[in-house]
C-alpha cells in the first residue's frame, strides 16, 4: 500500500491525455505561422514564430515542442518560400531549451524564467548564424539584415555582424514570445498544466509580471528599431 501511491502519482503526472496533444499541437503550429506572417507583413524587429513552440514545449514537453517547431517551418516553407525550412533547426533548439529548461527548474521564478528566455535567444542565435552566413550569405530579407549591414559598415566581419544583429532581435523576440506563451499557459485549464513548475503567483501580481515581461520584450524591440534608425 505504501509503495503503490508514489508510483500512481508519478504515472499521472507524466502521462497526458491524447486529446490535449491533438488540440494543442495544431493550434500551436497555426499560432507560429500566423505570428510569422504578421511579423513579415509588418516588418517588425522580431520573428514571432515560436510562441506556439514555447507553449507546447512547456506544457507537453520538449520533444512535442520540437515536433511543432519542425512542422511550423516545414508548412511555412510551402506557404512563404523555401527559406523557412533550414530555420527549423532554430525552432527545434528553442523547443528543447524551453522544454528541458522548465523541467530542470528554470521556470519556478519569474526572474529564472526571464533568464531561460535569454538562454533560448542565445542558443537560437547560435544555430541561426551558420544558416544565415553559409546558406544565405548573411541576408534573408529580414529586418535584422539592415543591422547586419550597419555592423559590417563598422568594420566587423560577417559572422560577428550577423550574430550581433541576430542576438539583439532574438532577445526581444524570445522574451516577448516566452511571456506571451506564459500568458497563454496561464489561461489553459488547470488540469493541462498541473505538475509543471511555473512561477506561482495569483491575481494582479501574475498579470503585472507577465505584462512586465512582454513590455520588456517590446522595449528591446523598440531599442533595436531606434538603433537601426540612428
Amino acid at each position: 500500500m505504501a509503495t503503490a501511491q508514489p508510483v500512481a502519482r508519478k504515472k499521472s503526472s507524466s502521462q497526458i491525455p491524447l486529446t490535449y496533444v491533438v488540440a494543442l499541437v495544431p493550434v500551436a503550429i497555426a499560432l507560429n505561422i500566423v505570428g510569422g506572417q504578421i511579423n513579415t507583413a509588418l516588418h517588425l524587429p522580431t520573428f514571432l514564430d515560436m510562441i506556439g513552440t514555447g507553449v507546447v514545449a512547456i506544457v507537453l514537453g520538449p520533444w512535442w515542442g520540437a515536433l511543432v517547431g519542425a512542422l511550423t517551418n516545414l508548412i511555412g516553407s510551402f506557404i512563404s518560400g523555401p527559406i523557412n525550412l533550414p530555420f527549423a533547426v532554430c525552432n527545434i533548439i528553442g523547443a528543447l531549451v524551453w522544454g528541458y529548461g522548465v523541467r530542470w527548474g528554470w521556470g519556478k521564478k519569474y526572474w529564472s524564467f526571464f533568464l531561460l528566455n535569454m538562454l533560448v535567444a542565445f542558443f537560437v542565435s547560435l544555430a541561426a548564424v551558420p544558416i544565415y552566413v553559409f546558406l544565405f550569405g548573411g541576408a534573408t530579407g529580414h529586418f535584422a539584415d539592415m543591422m547586419t549591414a550597419a555592423f559590417l559598415a563598422m568594420g566587423q566581419n560577417l559572422i560577428v555582424s550577423v550574430f550581433s544583429s541576430n542576438i539583439l532581435v532574438s532577445l526581444a523576440d524570445k522574451i516577448l514570445s516566452g511571456f506571451v506563451a506564459l500568458a497563454i499557459i496561464e489561461a489553459l485549464p488547470a488540469s493541462m498544466t498541473q505538475g509543471i513548475e511555473l512561477p506561482k503567483s495569483t491575481g494582479l501580481s501574475r498579470v503585472l509580471w507577465i505584462a512586465g515581461g512582454i513590455v520588456l520584450g517590446l522595449a528591446i524591440a523598440l531599442i533595436v528599431t531606434a538603433l537601426q534608425a540612428g
Binding site: Q15, G61, W63, A66, L85, I92
Partner: peptide, 30 residues
Amino acid sequence: KTVGFKEGLGAGIVGLGLIYFFLPSMIQKI
C-alpha cells in the same frame, strides 16, 4: 487514452524525419 514522454520523443523524431524528407527538394528551390 494518454501519451507520455516516449510518445513525445517519438513525435519529435518524426518531425526530424519529415524535415529530412523535404530537405533535398527545398534546398534545390533555395
